[in-house]
Design a protein around this nucleic acid. Structure first.
Lengths: 112, 112
DNA sequence: ATCCTTTATCGTAAATATACGATAAAGTAA
DNA sequence: TTACTTTATCGTATATTTACGATAAAGGAT
């Protein structure tokens, strides 16, 4: 794009869009589901369950870390990740508020 | 990317990721909020409330149409859009299920 | 010490997304 | 008819994302 106009939008719109972007790739959904399913630090096993190269998985993990929804720690040569439930809950709340606020305007006019 | 591996993931992960992608730009959030706020077909007024060129807004509208969350109709020279509340509700439900299913595994282990 | 394992990062290629101006298409107004 | 309005699409430039292989960095095993 010529330039990024992202920051000419309202802050809450940018926040929601950024959260949505973090969830906008099936690999990142799969990663979150896999880690949540165990609810322990997962150290390494993630690459095996995804149809992607190790470096690509590492990139997706980095994005989820950057969004704050994963926490990481290091255990020897291994890197461990787990869900940051506080942020995860914030994601949920942000979406829920967006949807319920929008729906509060619904009037069943059946316009188009 | 060399190739897109999107379809090597589970169908429900792709569905959620696609919904998230539709919501992953603040312009599209702003469009949905603006149309919802009126809950009538909006014919034309959308361009004025966004800091983007008309052709760019048209692209974002097309994406939301493609995701199914907007319905469109034509009224003379004007194009009108309104929220497809059925699909909007499906989006909400898809997110809500993802979050609540993941949270059902939360055990407060405080691992990392 | 050397070798192996594990994971992040670098370099790179290709796909996709974002944005704009120009133009086309189609209705409305005169 | 001609002129104007409205919106989609085309062409294009640039930014970002996705993906991989190669390599680096750092700990563990021998």
């Amino acid at each position: 794009m010529a330039q990024n106009k992202k920051h000419e939008f309202a802050a809450d719109e940018v926040v929601l869009a950024d959260i949505a972007k973090a969830l906008s790739h099936p690999a990142r959904i799969a990663i979150l589901k896999e880690i949540a399913k165990h609810d322990t630090c997962i150290c390494g096993e993630i690459v095996e369950v995804l149809p992607l190269a190790q470096s690509t998985v590492s990139q997706h993990l980095k994005e989820l870390l950057g969004a704050g929804v994963l926490s990481g720690s290091i255990d020897g040569t291994k890197s461990c990740y787990c869900i940051n439930w506080k942020v995860f809950g914030k994601f949920e709340k942000t979406f829920a508020e967006f949807f319920s606020h929008a729906k509060s305007f619904e009037t069943k006019r059946n316009c188009c």
